[in-house]
Design a binder for these strands. Structure first.
Lengths: 190, 190
DNA sequence: CTGCAACGAGACTGTTTCGTAGCGAAACTA
DNA sequence: TAGTTTCGCTACGAAACAGTCTCGTTGCAG
């Protein structure tokens, strides 16, 4: 992928991605047509096809470029603080109105677009790894049993926030995140 | 909605819904075109338009007809048994391969189809009510504080199962459901 | 067995969409 | 400033798609 990227081509590419993202957020995947993206971005269709070979290829890129990173917490302040800040950051990230409209589209497209599925899986495992590091802190501090299953815990902690952002009533995600962590820690405090 | 429904019209309607469901499962919302549904069902397009006025109307109906019910547990055996069986049933239901492909489509379409959003919300609140009844058992048994927030708990319990079924690795949902209930109950066992 | 309502087949219209191509203008490079 | 990319604009073709309509056929209740 280390192509020679002209500085000009980069600008048009950014414009296209921005416009396509907005269309995806406002009208769902069906709204992201080549003509609509071209019109909304002010970039010609022919230019769009100089960046991606098909519409689907562009759509995958749109999602990929919008996947947010979750800030990693400072491990020096101990397990509970680390977990709380990490999950709080996750909640804030997921609560972003733009991202929370992209997620369902991503989940749906995942079924029929293998490339997208791979990206989602990779992201998930990256985030599970960060969580693993935090859980190790808890094990070291004797607050968690060493036998704990990271995959299960990942579902247990991320699930509620994810679920609430998808089908949720007006629940505050940060509040929910605190509650989830509360219950998780309390459940291992014998 | 209490129309005079001919027995013959009912058959063609069922055939259309079955075919449309299969298309939705296998190809996503984009695959559910009027022509495709007509071809796959062996029912003429004109007949399809005698049942629904637009394609979207049909699509909403397809989702609606596929929303599963979760068996309610017998409350006489106490809180923990009731919660365990209810969540177990929920996990089994969500794990159904057909339904687990419809869900993401539903979540995605929800954004742009208000009718569908209403159906999803209604279903969610119905399920939250059933959970409420079970939680009340726990409160009566003194296993849960009376101040508990049903909405939060709903997210806490359903979230992980839902999340795992959407982006999950090969986790067994029933096993996850047990783990979630374990942690939830343990967290309130002071 | 008769009459009506529902049906199948498919032609047809108008629109949308993807993807391609040609050409003149603007932008970068030397 | 001269030359080479890269671009925007526009038109185009082919296919998919939603929705309508006609006409001849079939199931079914009375």
């Amino acid at each position: 992928m280390t192509k020679p990227i002209s500085p000009r081509a980069l600008r048009s590419r950014e414009k296209l991605l921005r416009a396509a993202t907005e269309l995806l957020v406002e009208s769902g995947p069906r709204g992201v047509t080549v003509d609509a993206v071209s019109d909304a971005s002010g970039v010609a269709k022919s230019t769009l096809y100089r960046h991606w070979q098909t519409r689907d290829e562009m759509l995958v890129d749109v999602v990929r470029c919008n996947i947010p990173d979750i800030d990693e917490p400072d491990p020096s302040r101990g397990f509970e603080v680390a977990l709380r800040t990490y999950m709080g950051n996750a909640a804030t990230t997921i609560a972003d109105p733009q991202w929370s409209r992209i997620v369902p589209a991503m989940m749906s497209l995942r079924t029929t677009m293998p490339d997208l599925a791979a990206i989602v899986d990779e992201d998930r495992s990256a985030k599970a790894n960060k969580l693993q590091a935090i859980l190790d802190l808890g094990i070291a501090e004797g607050l968690l049993p060493a036998s704990i299953d990271t995959d299960m815990v990942s579902n247990l902690l991320f699930g509620p926030i994810f679920f609430s952002s998808l089908v949720g009533q007006s629940t505050e995600l940060e509040k929910l995140s605190d509650y989830v962590v509360d219950r998780f820690i309390a459940s291992y405090a014998t």
